[in-house]
Design a protein around this nucleic acid. Structure first.
Length: 508
RNA sequence: GCGGGCGUAAUUCAGUGGUAGAAUGCCAGCUUCCCAAGCUGGACGUCAGGGGUUCGAAUCCCCUCGCCCGCUCCA
Protein backbone atom coordinates (compact mmCIF):
# COMPACT_ATOMS: atom_id res chain seq x y z
CA UNK A 1 0.00 0.00 0.00
CA UNK A 2 1.44 3.30 -1.10
CA UNK A 3 1.73 5.75 1.74
CA UNK A 4 0.41 9.13 0.69
CA UNK A 5 2.52 12.04 1.70
CA UNK A 6 0.37 15.00 2.57
CA UNK A 7 2.85 17.45 1.03
CA UNK A 8 2.43 15.86 -2.37
CA UNK A 9 -1.31 16.16 -2.21
CA UNK A 10 -1.20 19.75 -1.00
CA UNK A 11 1.17 20.61 -3.82
CA UNK A 12 -1.02 18.89 -6.41
CA UNK A 13 -4.09 20.68 -5.07
CA UNK A 14 -2.35 24.00 -5.55
CA UNK A 15 -0.80 23.15 -8.91
CA UNK A 16 -4.01 21.85 -10.46
CA UNK A 17 -6.39 24.38 -8.98
CA UNK A 18 -8.15 22.34 -6.34
CA UNK A 19 -7.33 24.24 -3.18
CA UNK A 20 -5.46 27.51 -2.58
CA UNK A 21 -4.55 29.24 0.68
CA UNK A 22 -7.09 31.99 1.29
CA UNK A 23 -6.03 35.52 0.30
CA UNK A 24 -2.60 34.18 -0.58
CA UNK A 25 -1.41 37.37 -2.30
CA UNK A 26 -1.56 39.03 1.10
CA UNK A 27 0.35 36.22 2.79
CA UNK A 28 -2.66 34.05 3.49
CA UNK A 29 -4.71 33.76 6.66
CA UNK A 30 -4.39 30.88 9.04
CA UNK A 31 -7.30 28.47 8.99
CA UNK A 32 -9.01 29.56 5.79
CA UNK A 33 -8.85 28.01 2.33
CA UNK A 34 -10.21 28.65 -1.16
CA UNK A 35 -11.44 26.09 -3.66
CA UNK A 36 -10.11 26.66 -7.18
CA UNK A 37 -11.75 25.75 -10.50
CA UNK A 38 -11.21 22.01 -9.98
CA UNK A 39 -11.86 22.03 -6.25
CA UNK A 40 -15.18 23.80 -6.54
CA UNK A 41 -16.42 21.15 -8.98
CA UNK A 42 -15.25 18.35 -6.71
CA UNK A 43 -16.81 19.78 -3.58
CA UNK A 44 -20.04 20.67 -5.40
CA UNK A 45 -20.27 17.13 -6.73
CA UNK A 46 -19.86 15.77 -3.21
CA UNK A 47 -22.52 18.10 -1.82
CA UNK A 48 -24.83 17.38 -4.77
CA UNK A 49 -24.38 13.63 -4.30
CA UNK A 50 -25.21 14.03 -0.61
CA UNK A 51 -28.30 16.09 -1.37
CA UNK A 52 -29.48 13.77 -4.09
CA UNK A 53 -29.00 10.62 -2.02
CA UNK A 54 -30.34 12.00 1.25
CA UNK A 55 -33.07 14.40 0.12
CA UNK A 56 -34.11 14.03 -3.50
CA UNK A 57 -34.15 10.23 -3.58
CA UNK A 58 -36.08 9.89 -0.31
CA UNK A 59 -39.73 10.43 0.59
CA UNK A 60 -39.03 11.23 4.23
CA UNK A 61 -36.62 14.14 3.87
CA UNK A 62 -36.99 17.84 3.15
CA UNK A 63 -34.35 20.53 2.82
CA UNK A 64 -33.70 23.85 4.48
CA UNK A 65 -31.29 26.75 4.10
CA UNK A 66 -31.05 28.86 7.24
CA UNK A 67 -29.34 32.15 7.88
CA UNK A 68 -25.87 32.01 9.34
CA UNK A 69 -26.60 34.70 11.90
CA UNK A 70 -29.53 33.91 14.17
CA UNK A 71 -31.08 35.31 17.30
CA UNK A 72 -28.34 34.89 19.94
CA UNK A 73 -30.80 33.12 22.22
CA UNK A 74 -30.51 30.13 19.90
CA UNK A 75 -26.96 29.68 21.16
CA UNK A 76 -27.93 30.06 24.79
CA UNK A 77 -30.46 27.27 24.30
CA UNK A 78 -27.98 25.06 22.47
CA UNK A 79 -25.38 25.63 25.14
CA UNK A 80 -22.82 27.17 22.81
CA UNK A 81 -22.89 30.45 24.70
CA UNK A 82 -22.19 30.03 28.37
CA UNK A 83 -21.71 26.30 28.72
CA UNK A 84 -18.65 25.95 26.57
CA UNK A 85 -16.79 29.16 27.26
CA UNK A 86 -15.08 28.15 30.46
CA UNK A 87 -12.45 30.58 31.61
CA UNK A 88 -9.00 29.02 31.54
CA UNK A 89 -5.85 29.69 33.54
CA UNK A 90 -2.35 29.11 32.22
CA UNK A 91 0.68 28.37 34.35
CA UNK A 92 3.68 30.31 33.06
CA UNK A 93 6.15 27.97 34.76
CA UNK A 94 4.82 24.59 33.71
CA UNK A 95 2.92 25.66 30.55
CA UNK A 96 -0.07 23.77 31.81
CA UNK A 97 -3.61 25.00 31.35
CA UNK A 98 -6.41 24.59 33.86
CA UNK A 99 -10.12 25.26 33.93
CA UNK A 100 -10.52 28.19 36.29
CA UNK A 101 -13.86 26.97 37.61
CA UNK A 102 -12.24 23.73 38.74
CA UNK A 103 -9.46 25.35 40.70
CA UNK A 104 -9.67 26.14 44.41
CA UNK A 105 -7.20 28.10 46.48
CA UNK A 106 -6.33 26.94 50.01
CA UNK A 107 -4.77 29.73 52.05
CA UNK A 108 -2.64 28.33 54.87
CA UNK A 109 -1.08 30.34 57.66
CA UNK A 110 2.03 28.69 59.13
CA UNK A 111 3.43 29.70 62.55
CA UNK A 112 6.98 30.41 61.33
CA UNK A 113 7.48 34.14 60.98
CA UNK A 114 9.38 36.16 58.43
CA UNK A 115 11.73 39.08 58.97
CA UNK A 116 8.81 41.42 59.67
CA UNK A 117 7.43 39.03 62.25
CA UNK A 118 4.47 38.01 60.05
CA UNK A 119 3.35 34.38 59.83
CA UNK A 120 4.21 32.49 56.66
CA UNK A 121 1.42 32.35 54.12
CA UNK A 122 0.98 29.72 51.43
CA UNK A 123 -1.86 29.93 48.93
CA UNK A 124 -1.98 26.50 47.38
CA UNK A 125 -4.14 25.87 44.32
CA UNK A 126 -5.78 22.49 43.81
CA UNK A 127 -7.84 21.01 41.03
CA UNK A 128 -11.18 19.32 41.33
CA UNK A 129 -14.90 19.52 40.78
CA UNK A 130 -15.37 20.44 44.45
CA UNK A 131 -13.19 21.87 47.25
CA UNK A 132 -13.11 18.39 48.79
CA UNK A 133 -11.74 16.87 45.62
CA UNK A 134 -9.18 19.63 45.23
CA UNK A 135 -8.08 19.33 48.86
CA UNK A 136 -6.48 15.92 48.53
CA UNK A 137 -3.35 16.91 46.66
CA UNK A 138 -3.19 20.24 48.44
CA UNK A 139 -3.15 18.67 51.90
CA UNK A 140 -0.13 16.59 51.00
CA UNK A 141 1.72 19.67 49.85
CA UNK A 142 0.66 21.53 52.99
CA UNK A 143 1.95 18.70 55.17
CA UNK A 144 5.39 19.06 53.60
CA UNK A 145 5.38 22.80 54.27
CA UNK A 146 4.28 22.16 57.84
CA UNK A 147 7.54 20.27 58.49
CA UNK A 148 9.43 23.41 57.57
CA UNK A 149 7.19 26.12 59.00
CA UNK A 150 5.29 24.33 61.75
CA UNK A 151 1.71 23.10 61.96
CA UNK A 152 -0.89 25.75 61.09
CA UNK A 153 -3.22 26.62 63.94
CA UNK A 154 -6.31 26.90 61.71
CA UNK A 155 -7.61 24.98 58.69
CA UNK A 156 -6.98 26.79 55.40
CA UNK A 157 -9.41 29.35 53.98
CA UNK A 158 -10.80 27.89 50.76
CA UNK A 159 -11.70 30.19 47.86
CA UNK A 160 -12.62 29.30 44.28
CA UNK A 161 -9.88 30.69 42.05
CA UNK A 162 -12.41 32.78 40.13
CA UNK A 163 -13.25 34.61 43.37
CA UNK A 164 -9.69 35.34 44.38
CA UNK A 165 -9.14 39.10 44.26
CA UNK A 166 -7.04 40.20 41.28
CA UNK A 167 -4.36 41.64 43.59
CA UNK A 168 -4.10 38.38 45.49
CA UNK A 169 -3.55 36.15 42.45
CA UNK A 170 0.21 36.68 42.56
CA UNK A 171 0.21 34.87 45.93
CA UNK A 172 -1.30 31.71 44.46
CA UNK A 173 0.97 28.70 43.97
CA UNK A 174 -0.10 26.66 40.96
CA UNK A 175 -1.11 22.99 41.21
CA UNK A 176 2.15 21.68 39.78
CA UNK A 177 4.74 24.22 40.87
CA UNK A 178 6.25 25.50 44.13
CA UNK A 179 6.50 29.03 42.94
CA UNK A 180 3.85 31.68 43.56
CA UNK A 181 2.55 34.03 40.90
CA UNK A 182 2.95 31.79 37.86
CA UNK A 183 -0.77 31.61 37.08
CA UNK A 184 -2.39 33.97 34.62
CA UNK A 185 -5.69 35.69 35.24
CA UNK A 186 -8.67 33.60 34.09
CA UNK A 187 -9.25 34.13 30.38
CA UNK A 188 -12.25 33.01 28.42
CA UNK A 189 -11.77 31.27 25.12
CA UNK A 190 -14.32 32.13 22.49
CA UNK A 191 -15.87 29.20 20.77
CA UNK A 192 -17.86 31.36 18.41
CA UNK A 193 -17.21 34.21 16.02
CA UNK A 194 -18.81 37.26 17.50
CA UNK A 195 -20.15 40.14 15.47
CA UNK A 196 -22.51 43.07 15.79
CA UNK A 197 -25.75 43.45 13.90
CA UNK A 198 -26.07 47.00 12.62
CA UNK A 199 -23.59 49.80 12.27
CA UNK A 200 -23.17 50.47 15.98
CA UNK A 201 -21.24 48.14 18.23
CA UNK A 202 -22.83 47.60 21.59
CA UNK A 203 -23.60 44.77 23.97
CA UNK A 204 -27.24 44.92 22.90
CA UNK A 205 -26.59 43.90 19.30
CA UNK A 206 -24.06 41.12 19.70
CA UNK A 207 -24.63 38.18 17.37
CA UNK A 208 -22.71 35.08 16.38
CA UNK A 209 -21.84 33.28 13.19
CA UNK A 210 -23.32 29.81 13.64
CA UNK A 211 -20.92 27.10 14.87
CA UNK A 212 -23.17 24.42 13.35
CA UNK A 213 -26.11 24.30 10.96
CA UNK A 214 -28.13 22.01 13.20
CA UNK A 215 -29.69 24.66 15.41
CA UNK A 216 -31.29 26.39 12.44
CA UNK A 217 -33.10 23.14 11.73
CA UNK A 218 -34.37 22.80 15.30
CA UNK A 219 -35.44 26.43 15.33
CA UNK A 220 -37.46 25.79 12.16
CA UNK A 221 -38.93 22.48 13.24
CA UNK A 222 -42.40 23.91 13.80
CA UNK A 223 -42.32 25.90 10.54
CA UNK A 224 -41.54 22.77 8.58
CA UNK A 225 -44.16 20.65 10.36
CA UNK A 226 -46.80 23.36 9.85
CA UNK A 227 -46.12 23.99 6.18
CA UNK A 228 -44.49 21.02 4.48
CA UNK A 229 -47.16 18.31 5.11
CA UNK A 230 -44.53 16.08 6.70
CA UNK A 231 -45.32 13.28 9.14
CA UNK A 232 -43.03 11.55 11.58
CA UNK A 233 -40.65 9.99 10.95
CA UNK A 234 -39.01 12.58 8.72
CA UNK A 235 -35.77 14.47 8.42
CA UNK A 236 -34.61 17.97 7.57
CA UNK A 237 -31.34 18.38 5.68
CA UNK A 238 -29.11 21.39 5.34
CA UNK A 239 -25.80 22.17 3.68
CA UNK A 240 -23.99 25.31 4.68
CA UNK A 241 -21.06 27.13 6.18
CA UNK A 242 -20.28 27.12 9.88
CA UNK A 243 -17.63 28.94 11.87
CA UNK A 244 -15.61 28.13 14.95
CA UNK A 245 -13.12 30.43 16.53
CA UNK A 246 -11.63 28.28 19.25
CA UNK A 247 -10.08 25.58 17.15
CA UNK A 248 -6.42 25.43 16.22
CA UNK A 249 -6.25 25.15 12.42
CA UNK A 250 -4.18 22.16 11.36
CA UNK A 251 -3.77 19.53 8.70
CA UNK A 252 -4.56 21.40 5.48
CA UNK A 253 -8.31 21.93 5.15
CA UNK A 254 -9.17 19.31 7.75
CA UNK A 255 -9.47 21.71 10.64
CA UNK A 256 -10.52 25.17 9.53
CA UNK A 257 -12.20 28.07 11.23
CA UNK A 258 -14.67 28.37 8.37
CA UNK A 259 -16.06 25.10 7.08
CA UNK A 260 -19.06 23.58 5.42
CA UNK A 261 -21.41 21.04 6.95
CA UNK A 262 -23.92 18.60 5.55
CA UNK A 263 -26.34 17.92 8.37
CA UNK A 264 -29.50 15.92 8.86
CA UNK A 265 -31.84 16.09 11.82
CA UNK A 266 -34.09 13.07 11.62
CA UNK A 267 -37.18 13.31 13.85
CA UNK A 268 -39.00 10.21 15.03
CA UNK A 269 -41.11 8.71 17.79
CA UNK A 270 -39.06 8.11 20.98
CA UNK A 271 -39.58 4.36 20.88
CA UNK A 272 -38.32 4.18 17.29
CA UNK A 273 -35.25 6.31 17.84
CA UNK A 274 -32.89 3.48 18.59
CA UNK A 275 -33.72 1.70 15.35
CA UNK A 276 -33.42 4.89 13.33
CA UNK A 277 -30.06 5.56 14.94
CA UNK A 278 -28.80 2.19 13.77
CA UNK A 279 -30.30 2.76 10.36
CA UNK A 280 -28.54 6.10 9.84
CA UNK A 281 -25.31 4.89 11.32
CA UNK A 282 -25.12 2.17 8.67
CA UNK A 283 -26.63 4.21 5.85
CA UNK A 284 -24.15 7.02 6.25
CA UNK A 285 -21.20 4.67 6.32
CA UNK A 286 -22.46 3.02 3.14
CA UNK A 287 -22.75 6.42 1.46
CA UNK A 288 -18.99 6.96 1.66
CA UNK A 289 -18.11 3.49 0.46
CA UNK A 290 -20.54 3.88 -2.44
CA UNK A 291 -18.63 6.96 -3.58
CA UNK A 292 -15.29 5.24 -3.55
CA UNK A 293 -14.02 5.45 0.03
CA UNK A 294 -13.70 1.73 -0.09
CA UNK A 295 -10.46 0.95 1.57
CA UNK A 296 -9.77 -0.19 5.06
CA UNK A 297 -9.02 3.46 5.82
CA UNK A 298 -12.71 4.16 6.45
CA UNK A 299 -13.93 3.16 9.90
CA UNK A 300 -17.08 3.27 11.97
CA UNK A 301 -16.43 3.76 15.65
CA UNK A 302 -19.03 3.73 18.42
CA UNK A 303 -18.46 6.10 21.31
CA UNK A 304 -18.13 4.48 24.68
CA UNK A 305 -20.05 5.70 27.71
CA UNK A 306 -17.48 8.25 28.89
CA UNK A 307 -17.18 9.81 25.48
CA UNK A 308 -20.91 10.42 25.04
CA UNK A 309 -22.34 13.90 25.48
CA UNK A 310 -24.63 13.93 28.51
CA UNK A 311 -27.79 14.21 26.38
CA UNK A 312 -26.83 11.43 23.96
CA UNK A 313 -27.52 7.74 24.46
CA UNK A 314 -25.50 6.65 21.44
CA UNK A 315 -23.04 8.26 19.04
CA UNK A 316 -20.83 6.86 16.32
CA UNK A 317 -18.06 8.49 14.30
CA UNK A 318 -17.23 7.72 10.72
CA UNK A 319 -13.48 8.10 10.60
CA UNK A 320 -10.89 8.12 7.88
CA UNK A 321 -7.24 7.32 8.24
CA UNK A 322 -5.59 10.43 6.82
CA UNK A 323 -1.82 10.67 6.44
CA UNK A 324 -1.85 12.86 9.56
CA UNK A 325 -3.91 10.38 11.58
CA UNK A 326 -7.35 8.87 11.97
CA UNK A 327 -9.88 11.69 12.08
CA UNK A 328 -13.63 12.19 12.05
CA UNK A 329 -15.57 12.76 8.85
CA UNK A 330 -19.04 12.52 10.30
CA UNK A 331 -20.75 11.93 13.60
CA UNK A 332 -24.10 10.19 13.94
CA UNK A 333 -25.68 11.07 17.27
CA UNK A 334 -28.80 9.93 19.04
CA UNK A 335 -29.69 13.23 20.71
CA UNK A 336 -32.97 12.19 22.29
CA UNK A 337 -35.35 15.13 22.71
CA UNK A 338 -32.63 17.35 24.12
CA UNK A 339 -32.57 20.02 21.41
CA UNK A 340 -36.29 20.51 20.95
CA UNK A 341 -36.75 20.55 24.72
CA UNK A 342 -34.06 23.18 25.12
CA UNK A 343 -35.61 25.39 22.45
CA UNK A 344 -39.04 25.01 24.03
CA UNK A 345 -37.56 26.05 27.35
CA UNK A 346 -35.71 29.08 25.98
CA UNK A 347 -38.27 30.25 23.40
CA UNK A 348 -41.39 29.47 25.38
CA UNK A 349 -42.92 28.02 22.20
CA UNK A 350 -44.46 24.59 21.91
CA UNK A 351 -42.34 22.45 19.61
CA UNK A 352 -44.05 19.18 20.38
CA UNK A 353 -45.59 17.01 17.70
CA UNK A 354 -49.15 15.72 17.51
CA UNK A 355 -49.60 12.28 16.01
CA UNK A 356 -53.02 12.48 14.28
CA UNK A 357 -53.47 8.74 14.01
CA UNK A 358 -52.51 7.79 17.53
CA UNK A 359 -53.94 11.00 19.01
CA UNK A 360 -50.74 11.53 20.96
CA UNK A 361 -48.69 14.62 21.66
CA UNK A 362 -44.97 14.23 22.40
CA UNK A 363 -41.56 15.71 21.78
CA UNK A 364 -39.87 13.86 18.90
CA UNK A 365 -36.47 12.30 19.35
CA UNK A 366 -33.68 13.18 16.98
CA UNK A 367 -30.95 11.30 15.13
CA UNK A 368 -28.28 13.65 13.83
CA UNK A 369 -25.92 12.56 11.06
CA UNK A 370 -23.57 15.53 10.82
CA UNK A 371 -20.92 15.45 8.09
CA UNK A 372 -18.13 17.81 7.12
CA UNK A 373 -18.15 18.69 3.43
CA UNK A 374 -14.54 19.87 3.45
CA UNK A 375 -13.43 16.84 5.40
CA UNK A 376 -15.22 14.53 2.99
CA UNK A 377 -13.62 16.37 0.08
CA UNK A 378 -10.18 15.94 1.64
CA UNK A 379 -10.80 12.26 2.33
CA UNK A 380 -11.88 11.68 -1.27
CA UNK A 381 -8.74 13.48 -2.46
CA UNK A 382 -6.51 11.37 -0.21
CA UNK A 383 -8.24 8.17 -1.26
CA UNK A 384 -8.03 9.06 -4.95
CA UNK A 385 -4.36 10.04 -5.00
CA UNK A 386 -2.36 7.32 -6.72
CA UNK A 387 1.07 7.07 -8.24
CA UNK A 388 1.42 4.40 -10.92
CA UNK A 389 4.76 3.53 -12.39
CA UNK A 390 4.75 3.36 -16.16
CA UNK A 391 8.06 2.54 -17.83
CA UNK A 392 10.06 3.93 -14.93
CA UNK A 393 8.03 7.15 -14.91
CA UNK A 394 5.53 8.14 -12.26
CA UNK A 395 1.96 8.55 -13.48
CA UNK A 396 0.00 10.60 -10.95
CA UNK A 397 -3.71 9.78 -11.04
CA UNK A 398 -6.64 10.96 -8.95
CA UNK A 399 -8.91 7.94 -9.08
CA UNK A 400 -12.15 9.69 -8.21
CA UNK A 401 -15.47 7.91 -8.43
CA UNK A 402 -17.01 9.24 -11.68
CA UNK A 403 -19.85 10.84 -9.72
CA UNK A 404 -17.53 13.21 -7.90
CA UNK A 405 -14.86 13.71 -10.58
CA UNK A 406 -14.63 17.45 -11.41
CA UNK A 407 -14.39 16.79 -15.16
CA UNK A 408 -16.30 13.78 -16.49
CA UNK A 409 -14.56 13.43 -19.85
CA UNK A 410 -12.02 15.11 -22.12
CA UNK A 411 -12.31 15.15 -25.89
CA UNK A 412 -9.17 15.17 -28.08
CA UNK A 413 -8.41 15.17 -31.75
CA UNK A 414 -5.49 12.77 -31.99
CA UNK A 415 -3.66 15.28 -34.20
CA UNK A 416 -4.56 18.81 -35.15
CA UNK A 417 -5.50 18.24 -38.80
CA UNK A 418 -7.60 16.22 -41.25
CA UNK A 419 -10.83 17.57 -39.79
CA UNK A 420 -10.22 15.92 -36.44
CA UNK A 421 -10.43 19.12 -34.37
CA UNK A 422 -13.78 20.02 -35.95
CA UNK A 423 -15.22 16.58 -35.30
CA UNK A 424 -13.86 16.53 -31.75
CA UNK A 425 -15.23 19.93 -30.96
CA UNK A 426 -18.69 18.93 -32.19
CA UNK A 427 -18.69 15.96 -29.79
CA UNK A 428 -17.37 18.18 -27.02
CA UNK A 429 -20.19 20.70 -27.56
CA UNK A 430 -22.75 17.95 -27.42
CA UNK A 431 -21.34 16.41 -24.22
CA UNK A 432 -21.10 19.80 -22.58
CA UNK A 433 -24.89 20.11 -22.59
CA UNK A 434 -25.03 17.34 -19.98
CA UNK A 435 -21.64 17.18 -18.33
CA UNK A 436 -18.63 19.19 -17.33
CA UNK A 437 -16.19 18.13 -20.05
CA UNK A 438 -12.87 19.42 -21.39
CA UNK A 439 -11.49 19.90 -24.90
CA UNK A 440 -7.78 19.88 -25.70
CA UNK A 441 -6.03 19.80 -29.07
CA UNK A 442 -2.61 21.06 -28.01
CA UNK A 443 0.56 18.98 -27.96
CA UNK A 444 1.15 15.25 -27.78
CA UNK A 445 -1.84 13.11 -26.93
CA UNK A 446 0.09 11.26 -24.23
CA UNK A 447 0.65 14.50 -22.39
CA UNK A 448 -3.02 15.33 -22.69
CA UNK A 449 -3.98 11.96 -21.22
CA UNK A 450 -1.62 12.42 -18.29
CA UNK A 451 -2.90 15.89 -17.63
CA UNK A 452 -6.46 14.55 -17.36
CA UNK A 453 -5.28 11.67 -15.16
CA UNK A 454 -3.85 14.13 -12.72
CA UNK A 455 -7.16 16.00 -12.52
CA UNK A 456 -9.07 12.75 -12.06
CA UNK A 457 -11.04 12.84 -15.34
CA UNK A 458 -12.42 9.30 -15.65
CA UNK A 459 -12.69 9.10 -19.44
CA UNK A 460 -11.01 10.52 -22.53
CA UNK A 461 -12.58 10.44 -25.98
CA UNK A 462 -10.22 10.64 -28.94
CA UNK A 463 -10.97 11.27 -32.61
CA UNK A 464 -8.47 9.64 -34.99
CA UNK A 465 -8.18 8.81 -38.69
CA UNK A 466 -10.46 5.83 -38.31
CA UNK A 467 -13.20 8.23 -37.25
CA UNK A 468 -13.27 9.51 -40.82
CA UNK A 469 -13.67 5.99 -42.15
CA UNK A 470 -16.28 4.45 -39.84
CA UNK A 471 -17.42 7.32 -37.61
CA UNK A 472 -16.24 5.71 -34.39
CA UNK A 473 -14.20 7.30 -31.62
CA UNK A 474 -12.00 5.77 -28.93
CA UNK A 475 -12.92 5.83 -25.26
CA UNK A 476 -10.04 5.57 -22.82
CA UNK A 477 -10.43 4.53 -19.20
CA UNK A 478 -8.41 6.52 -16.67
CA UNK A 479 -7.60 3.73 -14.25
CA UNK A 480 -6.67 0.97 -16.69
CA UNK A 481 -5.63 3.13 -19.69
CA UNK A 482 -7.70 0.65 -21.71
CA UNK A 483 -9.25 1.85 -24.97
CA UNK A 484 -12.24 0.74 -27.03
CA UNK A 485 -14.21 2.10 -29.97
CA UNK A 486 -17.68 3.59 -29.78
CA UNK A 487 -19.84 5.00 -32.61
CA UNK A 488 -19.50 8.80 -32.55
CA UNK A 489 -23.27 9.21 -32.61
CA UNK A 490 -23.55 7.15 -29.44
CA UNK A 491 -20.79 8.92 -27.51
CA UNK A 492 -23.10 10.81 -25.16
CA UNK A 493 -25.08 7.70 -24.28
CA UNK A 494 -21.89 5.68 -23.89
CA UNK A 495 -20.50 8.24 -21.47
CA UNK A 496 -23.79 8.37 -19.60
CA UNK A 497 -23.73 4.58 -19.19
CA UNK A 498 -20.17 4.64 -17.91
CA UNK A 499 -20.90 7.43 -15.45
CA UNK A 500 -23.93 5.50 -14.26
CA UNK A 501 -21.67 2.59 -13.43
CA UNK A 502 -21.59 0.45 -16.54
CA UNK A 503 -18.30 -1.45 -16.44
CA UNK A 504 -15.45 -0.62 -18.77
CA UNK A 505 -15.31 -3.24 -21.59
CA UNK A 506 -12.68 -5.88 -20.99
CA UNK A 507 -9.60 -6.04 -23.18
CA UNK A 508 -10.31 -6.91 -26.85
C1' G B 1 -2.00 29.37 23.49
C1' C B 2 3.35 27.12 24.16
C1' G B 3 7.96 25.09 22.01
C1' G B 4 10.87 23.75 17.65
C1' G B 5 11.70 23.90 12.27
C1' C B 6 10.79 26.39 7.73
C1' G B 7 9.34 30.42 3.94
C1' U B 8 13.47 31.75 -3.22
C1' A B 9 9.19 30.98 -10.25
C1' A B 10 2.87 27.56 -10.82
C1' U B 11 5.57 23.01 -8.37
C1' U B 12 10.10 20.73 -6.26
C1' C B 13 14.45 22.76 -4.80
C1' A B 14 19.87 25.06 -5.33
C1' G B 15 21.95 29.60 -4.07
C1' U B 16 26.20 31.75 3.52
C1' G B 17 27.45 39.39 2.06
C1' G B 18 28.94 41.27 -4.44
C1' U B 19 24.44 40.62 -11.65
C1' A B 20 18.21 35.80 -9.25
C1' G B 21 19.35 29.99 -10.76
C1' A B 22 17.97 24.59 -12.21
C1' A B 23 14.48 20.85 -13.23
C1' U B 24 9.50 19.99 -14.03
C1' G B 25 5.23 22.50 -15.48
C1' C B 26 3.06 26.50 -18.52
C1' C B 27 2.51 29.38 -23.45
C1' A B 28 3.48 29.74 -29.05
C1' G B 29 5.19 27.17 -33.36
C1' C B 30 7.05 22.78 -35.91
C1' U B 31 6.75 17.56 -35.68
C1' U B 32 3.64 13.57 -34.07
C1' C B 33 -2.03 8.05 -35.66
C1' C B 34 -2.33 6.81 -28.87
C1' C B 35 0.05 7.46 -23.19
C1' A B 36 4.47 13.39 -19.54
C1' A B 37 8.73 11.68 -26.98
C1' G B 38 11.66 15.40 -30.05
C1' C B 39 13.07 20.42 -31.98
C1' U B 40 12.70 25.92 -31.82
C1' G B 41 11.18 30.09 -29.35
C1' G B 42 8.77 32.47 -25.01
C1' A B 43 6.59 34.20 -20.40
C1' C B 44 6.94 33.93 -15.27
C1' G B 45 10.27 36.22 -8.97
C1' U B 46 7.53 42.48 -4.24
C1' C B 47 13.71 35.91 -2.65
C1' A B 48 6.67 35.86 2.71
C1' G B 49 5.99 41.25 4.52
C1' G B 50 8.12 45.37 7.29
C1' G B 51 12.21 47.53 9.75
C1' G B 52 17.54 47.51 10.90
C1' U B 53 23.13 46.59 10.14
C1' U B 54 26.29 47.37 5.67
C1' C B 55 29.33 50.81 0.26
C1' G B 56 26.30 46.48 -0.89
C1' A B 57 21.40 41.73 2.10
C1' A B 58 17.86 36.06 -0.64
C1' U B 59 22.15 35.58 2.77
C1' C B 60 23.30 38.88 9.28
C1' C B 61 19.76 41.10 13.33
C1' C B 62 14.61 42.48 15.06
C1' C B 63 9.25 42.42 14.44
C1' U B 64 4.92 40.61 11.91
C1' C B 65 2.40 37.01 8.87
C1' G B 66 2.06 32.16 6.94
C1' C B 67 3.26 26.81 6.62
C1' C B 68 5.03 22.14 8.97
C1' C B 69 6.00 19.08 13.53
C1' G B 70 5.13 18.20 18.84
C1' C B 71 2.17 19.72 23.13
C1' U B 72 -2.55 22.24 24.53
C1' C B 73 -7.49 22.77 22.90
C1' C B 74 -11.31 20.54 19.99
C1' A B 75 -19.35 21.28 23.05
Amino acid sequence: MMELEMDKLVSLCKRRGFIFPSSEVYGGINGFWDYGPMGVELKRNIKDAWWRDNVQMRDDMVGLDCSIIMNPKVWEASGHVGGFSDPMVDCRATKERYRADQMYVFAYLFPATNAKGEPTEAWLAGLGGSPGEAAEAVEKRAAKLAKKFGKPADPPVVTPYLEVAADDRIKVIGPSTDEAGTLTEPRSFNLMFKTYVGALESESNVAYLRPETAQGIFANFKNVVDTARVKLPFGIAQVGKSFRNEINPRNFTFRSREFEQMEIEFFCRPEEAKDWYKYWRDARFAWYTGLGLKSEKLRLRDHDAEELAFYSTATADIEYSFPFGVSELEGIAHRGDYDLTQHMKFSGKDLSYFDEEKKERFTPHVIEPSAGADRATLAFLCEAYTEDEVGGEIRTVLKFHPRIAPVKAAVFPLVKRDGMPEKAEAIYRELKRSYNVAYDEKGAVGRRYRRQDEAGTPFCITIDSQTNADDTVTFRDRDSCRQWRVPAAGAVQALRDLLDGKPVPSAE
